[in-house]
């Protein structure tokens, strides 16, 4: 199973941020997106997740195969950890929440309300949702923010498990997760500068 994108251009708001991006990823492989802040990593991931339509180019997979984890945790302070997991399990039609609990060591937190969790614990809960989606391709935006060394290792373990089970992952991150066979993609060169082809208001004849 291959996941490919070709000549992809993605926009945020009115502006095309990146263009000409392409990659090929097979099951069991991870792709690490590199690039400084503002280089378009988030925009690319949102595009792959189907939240913004691509301006140009083609994607070989459907957004329904992508599990997206954003910067924001998407958690409700008033709900308990167990309630949160059960809610998302129902939304994604997952029967069992135990893999998520085990993968991210949430067992001792189950009955706590989310607002009593630390930032790192919230992050773990948020990431555990990926397991519940049952989707093959994970699109992760800075997943290790506010995780400590141990939790990062745990997260890397969860990603590795996902990869060995035939999944794939696209991860925007600055740190080294030590994933086997991970491929790097620096998206800095794809930053869109000339928008002439996409923006009719930049026509030079227009006065």
């Amino acid at each position: 199973m291959y996941y490919t994108a070709q000549h992809l251009a993605c926009a945020r708001g009115d502006r095309t941020v990146i263009s000409g991006v392409g990659f090929q990823l097979r099951s069991g492989q991870a792709l690490i997106l590199r690039g400084p802040n503002g280089s378009g990593k988030t925009t690319l991931l949102r595009c792959l997740a189907g939240l913004t339509p691509a301006v140009a180019g083609s994607i070989s997979f459907s957004p329904d195969e992508v599990a997206y984890a954003a910067h924001a945790d998407g958690l409700k302070a008033q709900m308990s950890v167990a309630e949160t997991l059960q809610f998302w399990a129902k939304v994604f039609g997952a029967r069992d929440v135990t893999p998520a609990i085990e993968g991210f060591a949430l067992e001792p937190l189950l009955n706590r309300r989310v607002h009593t969790l630390s930032a790192g614990q919230k992050r773990r809960l948020s990431l555990s949702r990926l397991v519940l989606t049952g989707r093959k391709l994970w699109a992760l935006d800075e997943p290790t923010v506010s995780l400590d060394m141990q939790a990062v290792a745990q997260f890397a373990g969860a990603v590795t498990t996902h990869l060995t089970q035939g999944g794939a992952a696209i991860i925007a991150t600055h740190i080294d997760l030590g994933l086997p066979e991970a491929e790097q993609l620096d998206i800095t060169p794809f930053r869109a500068t000339a928008q002439t082809d996409t923006d009719p208001f930049l026509d030079e004849a227009l006065l």
Binding site: D14, R15, A192, T193, A194, Q195, F201, L202, L206
Partner: peptide
Amino acid sequence: EIRARRLQALLARERAA
């Protein structure tokens, strides 16, 4: 409006460059 949009687009291009 078209001129305003063009101005916006030009400014955005300048910022991007």
